[in-house]
Design a protein around this nucleic acid. Structure first.
Lengths: 249, 249
DNA sequence: AAAATTTGTCTATTGATATAGACAACTATA
DNA sequence: TATAGTTGTCTATATCAATAGACAAATTTT
């Protein structure tokens, strides 16, 4: 398995530097479990040969990953893997942040970054079945698991019905708990659309990523059991730290 | 919306060249519908100012997208968007390639690229509930919609039970039809795990992508209605052409 | 017809990326 | 205590990426 995963070649003149491509591949190998925690990476010379580049180029890749805290290099001994496998984030009819990561991370929370009231864009109005331009509350939140950023969500709620949900969210750190204060004791995932792209500047800052990283993006609508839309959300997940597990619903 | 989407800034010294980052952002803007088909892109000077780079850098980004067939530049007139929005590929309890894209592409088919018998790796054996090392058939197939590559799948089946499925697949061009010949009239999606990464060399060739492109990866198990696993598959989707729509199951 | 706008081409310069080789510093092992 | 294997540092050179400015070529607007 290690062979198949690391045999991937790299492309020149692609706009992505060789060291970045190699760093990405090493990161991928770790993520799919090619290296156990604390395992030694192959020596620089071996990696250079495998990828067909100079040893210094491999060193640039390793330096970047050391900087990111993924690897630790020790002179005379070798280079070692620090980071663990990806978190698996379940998505299903009842998708909840904290409950979903139970068992994978001991400490998990949702941090409210910003809350504002704004007129609904077409996209938001359509999803929540509101008139375009009517007031909605936008919440910006970051999900953290064991101190690491694992998600970054932007949510919209009807302002009239959920006035004050920002305060509830700041207090409880949970969407589920906040919605309960408004009489929503249960809600279901109506639709989820999934895509992936390179992280933009905001993602880089919020999720503590390096430029060139990939984010998984879900756009979802949550509804009450009787089908009334209550939340529209776009969530970004760092692909190198998180995978999404679509659970049978 | 155009403002928000294109206001994303770019990072220097990241290992990803500025022209590649700008090309990615333009691609993203198109994908989320910021530009209608045949709409004009802002002039090079305007884009250069927006991203804070030299006009020549923007030109490199545009040149790459012209090369990829996404844009068309006309001297004296402007630069125009050619490509359409992303396909939306439904994933649910009954995920079928051809049926899923009905209405979005007039011509769609699955092309068998390779078929071999091999011993099951641990990953495959676990998924299909077979003994490790027992024979499995591996099928490599590409999904095409209106002549464009939209998916690249690697599937495994128990060799004993599905001997000859490669021939059936070559003939019918459909997994569903092939399985019917083996008495499988219905099957369900048991699990799907989703991730994203940069395209590797094989993806680049098979899906006709440029280096640096992103692929969505699904790893799925299909089972008969009574829960017997019949197919294990890893499918790669080009993120710039496809989004995954998780349907209510 | 003239002016303004926009893409295309050229030259030149600077900084980041990649290659090449040599040797130092450190660790583990024979 | 050598010796082999590994990471760390240095110098030098070539190519790619990005900036800067000027002007040509084509199209649209005035």
């Amino acid at each position: 398995m290690a062979n198949r995963a690391m045999a991937n070649s790299i492309e020149r003149r692609s706009g992505v530097s060789l060291w970045r491509q190699i760093a990405d591949q090493i990161l991928h190998s770790i993520a799919i479990g090619d290296f156990a925690e604390n395992a030694a990476l192959p020596p620089e010379m071996a990696l250079a040969e495998r990828y067909g580049v100079n040893r210094h180029t491999v060193r640039s890749a390793i330096a970047a990953l050391v900087q990111e805290g993924v690897l630790r290099a020790e002179q005379g001994r070798g280079t070692f893997v620090l980071s663990r496998k990806r978190l698996s984030y379940p998505i299903g009819r009842r998708t909840r942040f904290s409950a979903g990561l139970q068992g994978q991370a001991s400490e998990r929370r949702s941090v409210l970054l910003e809350a504002t009231v704004e007129p609904a864009s077409r996209r938001v109005a359509d999803a929540l079945k509101l008139a375009r331009g009517s007031d909605v509350i936008r919440l910006e939140a970051r999900g953290e698991a064991d101190g690491q950023s694992v998600s970054r969500a932007t949510s919209w709620f009807e302002a009239r019905r959920f006035a004050g949900i920002d305060a509830a969210m700041a207090e409880t750190g949970s969407i589920t708990a906040s919605l309960e204060r408004f009489g929503v004791n249960d809600y279901l995932r109506q639709s989820t659309v999934l895509s992936a792209r390179h992280a933009d500047a905001a993602d880089l800052a919020d999720l503590d990523l390096r430029p060139g990283a990939i984010v998984l993006v879900t756009v979802a609508v949550n509804v009450t059991p009787d089908g009334q839309p209550i939340q529209f959300a776009e969530t970004r997940f760092p692909a190198e730290r998180v995978e999404l597990k679509l659970s049978a619903l």
